[in-house]
Design a protein around this nucleic acid. Sequence first.
DNA 1: CTGAAAGCGCTTACAG
DNA 2: CTGAAAGCGCTTACAG
Lengths: 337, 337
Amino acid sequence: MKKVTINSVAQYAGVSKKTVSRVLNNEPNVSPATREKVLKVFKELDYRPNPIARGLARNKSFIIGCLYDNPSKSYITRVQSGALEACHKHNYNLLIHPCELRGEALIDNIDQLLTTSRLDGLVLTPPFSDSRELIEFLKQKNINYALVASAIQDDDSISVCSNDEQGAFELTEHLIALGHTDIAFIKGHPDHSATENRFNGYKRALEQHQIPLQERLVAEGNFSYHSGADSAKAILDLTPRPSAVFASNDYMAAAVLKLATQRQLRVPEDLSIAGFDNAPIARHIWPGLTTIAQPVEEMTRQAVEQLILQISEPQDTVYQCVLEARLITRESTAANH
Amino acid sequence: MKKVTINSVAQYAGVSKKTVSRVLNNEPNVSPATREKVLKVFKELDYRPNPIARGLARNKSFIIGCLYDNPSKSYITRVQSGALEACHKHNYNLLIHPCELRGEALIDNIDQLLTTSRLDGLVLTPPFSDSRELIEFLKQKNINYALVASAIQDDDSISVCSNDEQGAFELTEHLIALGHTDIAFIKGHPDHSATENRFNGYKRALEQHQIPLQERLVAEGNFSYHSGADSAKAILDLTPRPSAVFASNDYMAAAVLKLATQRQLRVPEDLSIAGFDNAPIARHIWPGLTTIAQPVEEMTRQAVEQLILQISEPQDTVYQCVLEARLITRESTAANH
DNA sequence: CTGAAAGCGCTTACAG
DNA sequence: CTGAAAGCGCTTACAG
């Protein structure tokens, strides 16, 4: 079987290839009859336009790049699945590009990626979505991009995030309602805006309930399981020991749970533990982790959807949206006695 | 700044664009002096060939597709990272395509993918790498592909797998050496060849140590955490209860651990538990899971590397390789008393 | 060793 | 409403 191209379609339908092109792209100025005829030939010949030829002519690749540097595999797969959904809907493809924010020459790396792969746009996930330097570079290069879970306030950046501060606030209030006042907190990676937002939510809840913030209860993590284990050790060694630990993500919370269990502490009777993200591990361990569910797929889906819209027809005002995070209580938190 | 194309390079270097093309592709028949000169202009102008134009002329896309349908996020990310490494090395890109083996019209789905995205090759991970139907289709369509972790014996398929049978054998022997004879086994998904291989390793070890296989100890899982939870319930309800459980992957093993802990069984004192894969969860829970480490990244890396080689210069004989799996003992297994 | 011509399968800009 | 021409940035096939 030979290849079906715009030429074979044109010949078979008895029209010029420009006309075929017009119906292909849903352009006006084709009589209903001709349009009908060409459409029929598409079906008969099972014609599928060659995206590469299209790309060359229009100087487009129909490829969106997705940047990430995140220790959480589940976060990455969720990001990918949201991005893929939006891409497929509009006949785009997704190119995944894991790289390091702190790696030498990030800008060079991205520049290389852009010129080598001719991406039509970029979706930035944390911590890239919080990098002003990168965003400035993209603006200057005139590359379309969308920000996922970014704290950057910028009128001309497409941005979809969730309300981390509020989520952390609610989780902390949940612990306070259970009678906890000595609530340890494990921070995330300083490059992520989520780190500050979640910490702020924690502080606001304490403040609102007139519980003084204790610096000794705050540990510096970086979202990795390993950093959670280090922080867990520091926290469980404290005297007096706090009655609850709120870790900035579920991996770190799982590390706290592991150490607590190793030390024969009963969770939640002796120690309440909470995480953030609602990663699979939160329900795969016992006791299950109380946590905050973030709509990661949905954020990414919307971001990519808007990015593609922006690429095909540039908008004056840009889409920005804050989605809700929601508290999920499981067995790892209970009343303090 | 204007675009740097083969034309600008040719003009600047004072040669024809064919000559530029020759040095670009490392073709012979260019005098060392001209080659040198053109290479210098590449640098000066920071020339990067447009892969889309190249693709159109050569009828190539420089894109490899990666097919997967796997409940394990960590498996997927490992597959991706191995595949990306090989792709980047040869200036290819990776297109990820999650889809369902059992979904209606898999072949149609793949056909669509192939013609729409003009992939140069496909890397198949389980369960696709075990689908004869899909492989036949690809052969007939003349699409290059490589198989990861496939059990299919086929002289003309590139294939990289690891020795699951041997891994399961060693793990079972490890349990036997600890004094266990009543060892429950949770199978994986029937569409994956790993399921049979791992079960065979388990049976071979029992046999070699003259321990009769007890059907009542064998549960049907499907690699998902959820199926592990169901199997765990069935197994822990048995009387007499086995002293050890070997789950075909770590997620299912984690589910067994969760239920055992809920039921106040001490692991490993009352029950030894082992998994397979060495997924992150195996070390994120307490007690850590004894398991078999598979070189997933390396398998995929090699498979994609060979696939790209095959694409660029078709080989007569095809690469096939079996990598070693290796036992990792952690706290979840101990002597039976 | 080097290059002019034609072509990959589309689209853009223009003319009718 | 329709189409002939030129072009996107490369490569292939051929001639010298």
